[in-house]
Amino acid sequence: MQSPSASYRGHQAYGYLEPGVDYADFELAEQIGRVPAYDGGVSAEQSERVSRIMAEHIVISLHEHAVVLPKDVGELRRYNRTGRQRTGYEGLSRSGMTAVFDNFMAGASCVTSENGWKWNDMIYALGLRLADIAKQDYVVHALTVDDIRAAKRDGRMALVAGLESATMIENELDRLDILYGFGVRQIGVAYSQANQLGSGLAERADAGLTNFGRRAVERMNRLGMAIDISHSGDRTCLEVIEHSAVPVFITHAGARAVWPTNRMKPDEVIRACAERGGVIGLEAAPHTTLSEEHREHSLESVMDHFTYCVDLVGIDHVTFGPDTMFGDHVGVHKTYAGNYAQNRDAAPDHPNVAYVDGLENPAENFTNIVGWLVKHGYGDDDISKVIGGNTLRVLDHVW
């Protein structure tokens, strides 16, 4: 974990309002020190190199939820029903990141519905948090690649607004334009369940990209909105990749050859994404990117997926989208387990963990990732690619 950014002046979420009067107050999870610090076995000399690399290069997380959860995860649904999730400014200030793709937890912003992905609920999640971001001067809402580069120059944090699914646009293609106008620059096709655009990875059958989905892909291309296929079914992924005029992202997933579940991507999809210029970001949500060698989920498990993907498609097409937040991520999964009709495909037995050691929240992720890469002999040029350079290359093309 890095020292706090000199540009961070202590802003706390919704600090311009009075808690308990203007909005419901909750005791929040710790942004720093919620779980024991990760011991990656990095020497003092290696640690100095980690700090230098992160200071010199643009660091981008391709997928996070940079919000702070309630300390008592039993209050999570009540918290999310307010629509007013808290950005973790303090934790972000210690992350060493230049930019974060924040996916706004729209599927859990259940203001009007317990089932998520409703248009009005998504507007709550997006609008309230962007209003708060506008009231402080450390995190900047990034709309262009130049905004990301300017954040690096100015010592600030660029936040890219993303959504994990286009479900809430229903059959209204112009809603993509509205989202772009609100500042959304990345959107997923489907979140596990099928929608008007295509099939999710949890469905028993994958019908592929619909005719409406083809039009949506074309509209996103014209707008300059990055497309994510992380939660789409395999056929839908391949058809999105083929139909898009520009590269697409797998913002947060892993390799099915390493851990055989539907949440991971098969070689065919990873290769197709890379062949069209795209990038896969390695996922670290609890109990996803496991491996036979490291069944207890940790940074080591995730890096087994990293090395596999680098061998498969080359280092120019791999990055990291850890998919973490500040608080009990395992508790989030338990809270919302009944919201989506998941395909409970058989997975190898593995231990349950309370958190992913080394990749528990956005404050620590990239310090530990770069530490692992340094310890395992990767050069500065390759490290710079996988911690941000590859993502910037795609964004230069897509945006």
Results as ranks from 00 to 15, higher is better:
269 V>W: 00
379 G>Q: 13
149 R>H: 12
341 A>G: 13
333 H>C: 00
174 D>G: 09
59 V>Y: 13
50 V>N: 02
138 Y>H: 13
164 E>M: 07
385 K>S: 07
8 Y>D: 07
257 A>D: 15
49 R>W: 02
260 P>Q: 01
194 A>M: 13
364 E>T: 11
133 I>H: 10
331 G>P: 02
165 S>G: 07
222 R>L: 11
196 Q>D: 12
345 D>T: 12
100 V>D: 08
198 G>Y: 06
246 V>F: 13
135 K>S: 10
41 G>M: 00
393 R>A: 05
163 L>W: 13
224 G>M: 13
132 D>H: 09
239 E>W: 03
309 C>M: 11
59 V>S: 10
9 R>P: 01
355 Y>Q: 09
339 N>A: 01
213 G>L: 04
260 P>H: 01
367 T>I: 03
298 S>D: 09
61 S>F: 04
185 R>M: 09
108 A>E: 11
169 I>V: 14
350 H>Q: 04
366 F>E: 02
137 D>V: 00
239 E>Q: 15
60 I>S: 05
294 H>D: 14
125 A>C: 00
371 G>T: 08
154 D>I: 04
183 G>E: 02
110 C>T: 15
253 A>R: 02
41 G>I: 01
45 E>F: 01
25 D>T: 11
86 R>P: 00
296 E>Q: 06
126 L>V: 12
99 A>T: 09
244 S>W: 01
309 C>T: 15
194 A>L: 11
362 P>S: 14
42 V>Q: 03
48 E>V: 03
211 N>V: 01
244 S>F: 00
130 L>R: 15
303 M>T: 05
23 Y>G: 07
341 A>I: 08
348 P>V: 05
194 A>S: 15
377 G>T: 05
177 D>C: 04
356 V>P: 05
249 F>K: 02
120 N>Q: 14
23 Y>R: 03
279 V>K: 11
190 A>W: 09
282 L>T: 03
76 L>D: 00
42 V>F: 02
192 S>Q: 14
158 A>H: 05
366 F>L: 05
28 L>H: 01
223 L>T: 00
248 V>W: 12
62 L>R: 09
261 T>E: 14
20 G>D: 02
115 N>A: 13
201 L>Q: 03
371 G>S: 04
318 V>T: 15
304 D>L: 00
117 W>D: 11
135 K>N: 12
185 R>V: 04
150 A>T: 15
260 P>Y: 03
172 E>F: 12
52 R>T: 12
80 N>L: 14
162 G>L: 08
